[in-house]
């Protein structure tokens, strides 16, 4: 009983903190200075964000059907705004999923192969650790030259960013598998291939899930940053346009939308983690 009350109190405290932050933001918005270009508040109010700025999303609906197209003289409508947000969200999320999946397959696959071969592991240790130190966002211009300012460029950028995290996570996770399990499997007559499949792979899942969680944050940053520089669709591109026009309300709205998606993806990851790690104690999942 007392635990339930304590949990409830903690939840209430969290909600109160969030509400307080919203109130502080709104108060600051009322006294906020204006931008030089468009005379918009540097700190936009929530009325602006979920009113004018949300309606303004209709400007990014570029198709001549379902809702008026403002670039063809149509009116801004909430339907257009929702369709535009949905379309650009779908584009961004598809790039994120493709990049994350590619990074997972390449990073984990390469990590498994590298861990299998001590020679390969030693040969790659220094270059990979050096590569990890390279600031990812500073690589965007180079990727634009290499792959182009298009979806492939953004996806490749996410693959490289998350793939490195997955690779390092996999190699470390394999190195941390207790020898007692592999020794035990050997005495049960297991081949090296079966030990890898039935012992090493399940044993590294907890650490791999941590890598996925880490990569998710990185993937969101990478995909938005990739879209921010040059590409003509996606939430990152809306941010760029909004910045050009000093539309702080639209920028805040996109930030809130991305935060909501990121939170949802973390929740999904956490759900998958609970399912995949059913064999662990609840507090260890």
């Amino acid at each position: 009983m007392s635990t339930t009350r304590t949990n409830g109190q903690i939840r209430l405290l969290s909600v109160l903190t969030l509400v307080s932050l919203v109130v502080i933001w709104e108060v600051c918005a009322q006294f906020s200075p204006k931008t030089a270009l468009a005379q918009t508040a540097i700190i936009p109010s929530f009325t602006d964000i979920f009113g004018r700025s949300l309606l303004g999303m209709a400007d990014y609906w570029k198709f001549p059907f379902w809702a008026p197209n403002t670039s063809m003289g149509g009116q801004q409508t909430y339907l257009g705004a929702i369709l535009a947000l949905g379309y650009h969200s779908a584009v961004t999320i598809s790039r994120l999923v493709m990049g994350l999946a590619g990074g997972f397959v390449i990073g984990v696959g390469f990590g498994l192969v590298t861990s299998w071969s001590p020679v390969l592991r030693q040969a790659l240790s220094l270059p990979i650790n050096m590569f990890r130190m390279v600031p990812l966002l500073a690589m965007i211009p180079l990727f634009q030259f290499w792959v182009g300012t298009n979806t492939q460029g953004v996806v490749t950028f996410v693959i490289v960013g998350t793939g490195t995290v997955f690779f390092v996570g996999t190699v470390n996770a394999i190195a941390n598998v207790p020898v007692k399990y592999t020794d035990y499997a050997r005495t049960l007559g297991c081949s090296e291939a079966r030990i890898y499949m039935s012992v090493v792979l399940p044993a590294i899942i907890p650490e791999l899930l941590s890598s996925i969680s880490l990569s998710l944050g990185l993937a969101w940053s990478a995909v938005v940053a990739g879209e921010y520089v040059g590409i003509d669709t996606g939430l990152g591109r809306i941010l760029t346009f909004a910045q050009f026009m000093s539309q702080t309300g639209r920028m805040a709205l996109i930030a809130i939308v991305i935060t909501a998606y990121a939170a949802a993806s973390y929740a999904l990851c956490s759900y998958a983690s609970r399912k995949l790690l059913a064999w662990r104690r609840p507090n260890e999942r």
Binding site: P178, K180, Y181, D183, Y184, A185, R186, T187, L188, G189, S198, V199, P202, A203, I205, W279, R280
Partner: peptide, 28 residues
């Protein structure tokens, strides 16, 4: 090298935690 003709029970707890009891027993 190791062989299924010489099974071993270790000092540490080596039952695979990610397998159910019957899967552990059937592993060999």
């Amino acid at each position: 090298g190791p062989s299924r003709d010489r099974a071993m029970v270790f000092q540490e707890d080596t039952v695979f935690p990610w397998m159910r009891v019957d899967e552990n027993v059937g592993f060999g």
